[in-house]
Computed example of a mutant assay.
Amino acid sequence: MRLVAFLVVLLGFAVTALAWSKEDYEIFDLVSALEAAEGKGIDFYKHVGVEPSASTSEINKAYRKKSLELHPDKNPGVKNIQERFARLGVIAQILRSSEGRERYNFFYKNGVPKWRGTGYYYSRYRPTLSHTLVFLVVLTSAFHYLVLNLNYRKHNRRIDYFQNAARSSAGILGVTSSQNGEKVTVPVQGRRRKVRVPMVEGSDQGGTLELVVVGNDVFIPHSDGTLEPISGLAHPPSITQTWFVSLFLSLYFKGFDRLPPSIQESIPEFLQSKQPAQSDLILDEEEEQDEAESALDTPTPTNRAARRLQGKKSRSVTSTPKDSPATTELESGDEDSKGEKKKKLTVGKAGAARRRKMGLKR
């Protein structure tokens, strides 16, 4: 409804602007120039010195008297006297003409319009290249900000859908009493569930999204085990996100990083380039110790596989014949260095268990 009203008003302005003629534009210029030179609020009749109901003969008589006052020969050295004298002649000519006077009386009673059409302003105030570029930058940046705002609202609606669907799948959304039957959020403490939510509302053909519900909060799980709140994915728009400001800031920070350190330190702190803080997962010392102890007490599948491989290698070494060169070199080397025989490694489950214990102690 607002869009329709805006279009109607815009169409009205366009029709009004197209209705102005060349003579109307001349009157607009004279009104602006007369107020700038003689004072605010002065009109054609006051400037000539007659009443709005004056006849043509009265206008001619008043014009001759006023022209003698503003004649350049009678006012030597007066600034802009020639322009004022020429303007008086044009005004008197409009008032003496029946058609021109009728057109001026329309604007005299209703007022001169502030918006006179783009053609009028362009013909009188031709913009330079710099003005055109500034106008285009402002216009495109405003349009970009509008698009960012629309995307932000769209993302918020999507996030609300995923949150409600995830809570509903986790059993957090309940139904109130029979008074209104609306869904409300029931707080659940210490509850964590993984749920899958359709990407498209009401359809599973578009795929699903895995989410984690902890209490009433909804998170997105990552491959490294961290959880990211889904509510923080939508960032509100700002002026710094528009294309021109973001391009300017990126070029500024690149140039700042290339400056010598002495010059960087002399620049105020708010103008210095700030590196984004890295979000690392920091654990307490107690949590690190608990995780280390649990890793030792509960071997991972990779540790088990390595120990099985180590057991196989040890069994293959111990099962070699005694007469083999490897065995004789090992035994001879031990006897020469220590002078005593080493105990043979026991092959079997008991030996493998002892080796695992020794590996954990190390």
Rank of each mutant, 00 (worst) to 15 (best):
S319L: 15
E51M: 10
P261F: 00
A277S: 09
P229H: 01
L296K: 11
N80A: 11
T298P: 01
R103C: 09
R193L: 14
Y145I: 10
L247N: 08
T318P: 00
F13Y: 15
R196T: 02
D224K: 06
T132R: 14
S246R: 14
W115P: 03
T16Q: 15
E210W: 00
D334Q: 03
N151G: 05
V245L: 10
P325N: 14
V15A: 15
E228Y: 03
S238G: 15
D334L: 11
A19C: 14
E102I: 04
F256G: 05
L209T: 02
S123W: 02
D290K: 12
L233Q: 10
V317R: 06
V200S: 01
A142W: 02
L148S: 08
Q289C: 03
L18K: 06
A33Q: 12
S238D: 09
E288W: 08
K66T: 15
E286V: 13
I94K: 07
R124A: 14
D290P: 00
P325A: 12
G111C: 07
E265L: 08
A54E: 01
V8W: 08
I220W: 01
T208Q: 03
K79E: 11
E58F: 01
L211D: 01
R258Q: 13
G206E: 04
S141E: 05
H155E: 15
A326G: 08
F270E: 11
M1G: 10
F44I: 02
E26N: 03
A292K: 07
K313M: 14
S223H: 03
T128D: 08
F270G: 13
T16E: 15
V31W: 01
A36Y: 09
L233F: 09
E286N: 14
N151T: 03
A17T: 09
E335K: 12
P301H: 08
Y104G: 00
F6S: 13
I159R: 02
L7S: 12
L88P: 01
E335T: 10
D204W: 09
G41F: 07
V4M: 12
G39Q: 10
G117C: 08
N180V: 07
Y120F: 15
S319M: 15
R307C: 07
S319C: 13
Y152H: 06
T327L: 04
P113N: 08
I59H: 00
F253K: 08
F106G: 03
R315H: 11
N216E: 09
I42D: 03
S141G: 11
S279H: 11
N149L: 14
G100V: 00
Y161M: 00
P229Q: 09
A5Q: 12
L136S: 03
P236C: 10
S53T: 04
P268S: 10
G181V: 01
D334R: 07
N75Q: 13
P113W: 02
Y120H: 13
F107P: 04
V200P: 01
S55K: 08
V213N: 02
A14G: 13
V31G: 03
A165W: 00
D280W: 08
L148R: 05
V245D: 06
G100Y: 04
N105T: 04
F13R: 06
Q163W: 06
D257I: 00
F135R: 07
I91N: 04
R124P: 11
P276D: 04
R258I: 11
T327F: 11
I59T: 01
A352M: 10
G77P: 04
